[in-house]
């Protein structure tokens, strides 16, 4: 039979030699290997105290962005919800009232904005779909929770703190 690749390794079907039948030399070799591993660098880290850095393209929990003046960027256009393959995003739009200009950047805003982190597959399509640079994926992941409703993140969980307020603090 002709081999399909040049990496074919024929199976060695020769009967065991006397030394191999003794088992002990092979066992000793194996034990030497495992003994060597006792002194090697550990592959694992002590997690909560020591964390491995994520890759720069890691896609974790979402945030809702504000502009430089601290106004919410989201205009509740719904493009993120449309782009979402897992249908994890829901929102309700509302109209900006006079006097709320310092809160919302444009005249329409999201009165409620929810992402179900149990549905979300962290593909980042919402980030790509957003025309207003309002939603971003961060380098953290959703912490454990006791109840399903704890995984439904509302606006208060997603919005980043106001940069102006933060400065005063």
């Amino acid at each position: 039979m002709q081999a399909l690749t040049d990496r074919v390794k024929p199976v060695d079907r020769r009967p065991l030699t006397f030394m191999e039948k003794l088992y002990l030399p092979a066992i000793w070799k194996g034990m030497a290997i495992t003994f060597k591993h006792i002194f090697q660098k550990k592959a694992t880290v002590s997690y909560p105290e020591e964390k491995r850095p994520f890759s720069p393209v890691f896609r974790g929990l979402h945030i809702l962005n504000r502009d430089e003046e601290g106004r919410e960027r989201c205009t509740a256009c719904g493009l993120c919800a449309v782009a979402c393959p897992a249908e994890a995003i829901t929102m309700e739009a509302a109209e900006r009232k006079p006097g709320e200009e310092h809160l919302y950047r444009e005249e329409k805003y999201a009165a409620s904005y929810e992402i179900n982190m149990l549905r979300c597959i962290f593909c980042g399509f919402c980030e790509e779909a957003c025309p207003k640079d309002a939603i971003y994926l961060t380098e953290t992941f959703a912490p454990a929770n006791y109840q399903r409703k704890g995984f439904i993140y509302g606006k208060e969980d997603l919005l980043i703190p106001d940069p102006k307020e933060k400065q005063t603090v």
Binding site: F35, H37, I38, Q40, K42, A43, T44, S46
Partner: peptide
């Protein structure tokens, strides 16, 4: 330690 892990700690 044989499997390059840390074990119960």
């Amino acid at each position: 330690v044989i499997q390059d892990r840390r074990g119960p700690n």
